[in-house]
Design a protein around this nucleic acid. Structure first.
Length: 746
DNA sequence: ACACTGTGAGTTTTT
DNA sequence: CTCACAGTGT
């Protein structure tokens, strides 16, 4: 009988997948290769736990990094197992933590209506703090400070944590404490703070921690390769003494280490859980044999991996097509010509995708596609909720919900313009700092005790604007508190603030588009009202803060268009297409020049990225590069990507494509090469020429004027050779080697 | 408050 | 080259 039931959940699964479903007696790590049926296996496992092992859905927690993965799993679980709505928790780390924190808000001295700040808002805080110290962004890059802060949080640090790992004498540490104070004053968390705040709660408050530990009997983590240290520590705290943990990931697809993802979470899993069972899902169901073997050969070069051998029963399929193009425009032409003929042969544009390393590469391709009237869509790009007008309205709503939200207040106090500019705002901010109160309280104080603030010398116009603004927000706040619907509040915001009318009055094309976007935001609010059981404004704001998914553009969805998809390689993770074009497979482009600074670690991540891109392809994979490319206003001859060199020649065929006659490139010997000569020798030759420069990356040098420094970037050869040098004082300078008084110290 | 100009930097962006 | 942003001028 039990056997029968088991069969039901494992039917159609291969040996390893079945084992992954049925092994539930201790920590389990599933290393799931690309296209190995991971989600299917996970969903079967959930079914198995619920139905065969009779585990209560309330005791199961499934965490992922992205909403996309959470949604996918949630939908498929709901479909497969008839679990009561909302019983099973399948959610993102951030959403989970946010819920915990709202529930336990008192503990951290915050109220449950806290705001969640995105990176742009975090950056604004850093800049404000720097401004307070009178430090210009030129002296210290605010981005570096923010990066420092995020890094601390990614590693699981929070103020008050007892640890020896943090160097509190670091000059940036002071910014961190100021920044945290600022967030606290604004009753706000940043993304990292949601995780570390929960860590703080669980580490310091035993009874709350134990309550959560008791609640969850089994924890699953998807996209495990994308988790950071803080999230790992959180998992340990949620588990407690229990060992019922299943993590699923693929170290070869870890492409977000620069955002804090810690590949060590996979590589060191066995150190923390010595009794762990490691299972590998290595059979690929997605791609042709040629593609799988080519991709495997590339990723095999990585050292930092546990190691997997992907294999497939799929047919060999077409050779991978490497296409050497004359220029980036030739490349774009080749891709669109090829797509054009595929479509002509009855293939659907929906089945085709073009991947590039950097967004800037999309333009020339878009031009070529448009020229041939091929429909396409650029995936990613500008997010709906990142638009100025949407952020403005959301800031109003946030300020209504959270009076302490100084950032939102500052954003909208003069939107639409009411003569309360930067100067007046600075004065008000100073009062808030001096009196250690929130910005909102400062506003109220200035208006209510006008006489005390005569020395601030605010104009009558400013006073009337302040009165208006305080009245507006106060009224809407009390309406909201009285339970008025979010949509009504939204309408009152756009009408009463004058925002709607000011956009209407503008009458230009841009303002019209903004009005439409605001309308769309309104319908999103309405939709949230009807679909969510907890339809509060707070709930809506949290949803969109943590889920950036583009809201449906109705016009786009109406058209049953067949479109080619364009996206960055990062954006392609988790997707699959029968026909995949990877463009810009060149040194300095893919791998990106920036990643080359990071040494072997940087290259390995680029290689994983390349591997992710390759393994998206089901039927046919095209790898394109340009001999000459306009980059930063200069014609560059980068040479084919080293990753092409890592593909054994038996898996690809090579083609040369050139329609344009392009500028003479006498500084380069590569166009002289016979494109039809043996590919191996071609590539070797090109890598040869890369070492023909005087200085190398990482080389220590001395400059007669600036002193000792290190080469971080090189470009060009011979008389054109240029180097970027970072000097010991942190100053960066670019030189033409021919002229600069440089000598090597190495 | 706005428009213009010069400067500098220029991957990737799940939350 | 091309964009964003800071600083200047009106």
């Amino acid at each position: 009988m039990i056997q029968e039931t088991c069969k039901e959940f494992t039917s159609g699964l291969n040996q390893q997948q079945q084992e992954a479903v049925q092994y539930n007696s201790g920590p389990l790590m599933i290393l799931a290769g690309a296209g190995s049926g991971k989600t299917r296996t996970l969903v079967s496992k959930v079914s198995y736990l619920l139905d065969s092992l009779k585990m209560s859905p309330f005791k199961l927690l499934a965490l992922t990094f992205s909403n996309k993965a959470a949604r996918e799993m949630r939908e498929r679980v709901a479909l497969t197992c008839g679990v009561p709505q909302g019983a099973l928790q399948v959610t993102t780390f951030h959403s989970f933590c946010s819920r915990v924190l709202r529930h336990e808000a008192d503990y951290l001295g915050l109220s449950k209506n806290f705001s969640i700040y995105d990176q742009g808002e975090s950056m604004a805080i850093v800049k404000t703090i720097m401004g307070r110290y009178g430090i210009s962004p030129k002296e210290i890059s605010p981005y570096e400070i923010l990066y420092y802060i995020e890094d601390l949080k990614n590693k699981g640090h929070y103020l008050g944590k007892t640890t020896s790992e943090i160097d509190e004498t670091d000059p940036f540490y002071g910014y961190y404490t100021d920044y945290e104070q600022e967030l606290h004053k604004a009753n706000a968390f940043d993304f990292g703070g949601l995780i570390t705040g929960t860590l703080n709660l669980f580490e310091k408050n035993t009874s709350i921690r134990e309550a959560y530990q008791r609640r969850y009997e089994y924890i699953m983590v998807d996209e495990y390769q994308d988790t950071n240290r803080a999230q790992f520590l959180l998992l340990l705290l949620l588990l407690g003494e229990k060992r019922n943990l299943c993590v699923v990931g693929d170290e070869d697809q870890s492409i977000y280490s620069w955002r804090g993802a810690d590949i060590g979470n996979i590589l060191d899993f066995e150190k923390v859980f010595p009794e762990v069972r490691v299972l590998r899902l290595e059979q690929n169901y997605r791609s042709s044999k040629n593609i799988i073997e080519a991709a495997s050969a590339v990723i095999a070069r990585n050292i930092m991996r546990k190691g997997k051998e992907l294999w497939t029963e799929n047919p060999i399929g077409d050779s991978v097509q490497v296409c050497e193009c004359g220029s980036e425009r030739d490349e774009a032409n080749f891709v669109s010509e090829e797509i054009s003929s595929l479509i002509q042969n009855g293939e659907s544009a929906n089945d085709m995708a073009i991947f590039y390393r950097a967004n800037s590469q999309s333009r020339v391709i878009e031009d070529a596609l448009r020229e041939r009237k091929i429909n396409y869509r650029v995936v990613g790009g500008i997010k709906f909720y990142d638009r100025k007008e949407v952020k403005d309205v959301l800031s109003y709503l946030r300020l209504i919900v959270n009076p302490k939200d100084a950032l939102s207040l500052a954003r909208v106090i003069n939107v639409p313009a009411r003569g309360l500019g930067a100067t007046s705002l600075k004065k008000l901010e100073k009062i808030a700092v001096d009196e250690n109160c929130s910005l909102w309280e400062a506003l109220v104080a200035v208006v209510e005790r006008k006489d005390n603030y005569a020395h601030i010398r605010l104009s009558a116009k400013v006073y009337s604007s302040l009165n208006f603004f305080i009245g507006l927000i106060s009224e809407l706040r009390s309406l909201s508190d009285a339970g008025e619907s979010p949509f009504k509040i939204f309408e009152r915001v756009i009408y009463d603030s004058g925002y709607w009318d000011s956009l209407r009055a503008a009458k230009d094309y841009e303002s019209m588009a903004r009005l439409e976007n605001i309308e769309e935001l309104g319908s999103a609010i309405k939709q949230n009202e009807s679909s969510s059981e907890n339809a509060s404004l707070l709930n809506f704001l949290e949803t969109i803060a943590l889920d950036n998914t583009q809201i449906g553009n109705e016009e786009e969805e109406m058209k049953p268009l067949s479109q080619v998809s364009l996206m960055t390689v990062h954006g392609s993770k988790g997707l699959e297409f029968p026909f995949v074009f990877i463009v810009g497979a060149e040194e300095n482009v893919f791998p990106s020049y920036k990643s080359l600074e990071g040494g072997e670690t940087g290259i390995e991540e680029e290689r994983r990225l390349f591997y992710v891109a390759m393994t998206r392809a089901m039927k046919k994979l095209y790898l394109c590069f340009a001999r000459a490319r306009m980059l930063f206003g200069q014609l560059r001859f980068n040479g084919p990507s080293r990753f092409l060199n890592e593909i054994p020649s038996k898996y690809y065929s090579w083609k040369f494509y050139k329609t344009e006659r392009f500028e003479d490139n006498s500084s380069d010997d590569y166009s002289q090469l016979d494109p039809y000569s043996s590919q191996e020798s071609y590539i070797i030759k090109s890598s040869h020429k890369q070492s023909s420069s005087k200085f190398k990356k990482g080389e220590k040098v001395n400059h007669a004027v600036y002193g000792a420094g290190k080469v971080v970037e090189t470009d060009g050869y011979g008389v054109d050779e240029k180097v970027l040098i970072v000097f010991s004082n942190g100053c960066k300078k670019r030189f033409l080697v021919k002229f600069a008084p440089l000598c090597s110290l190495s």
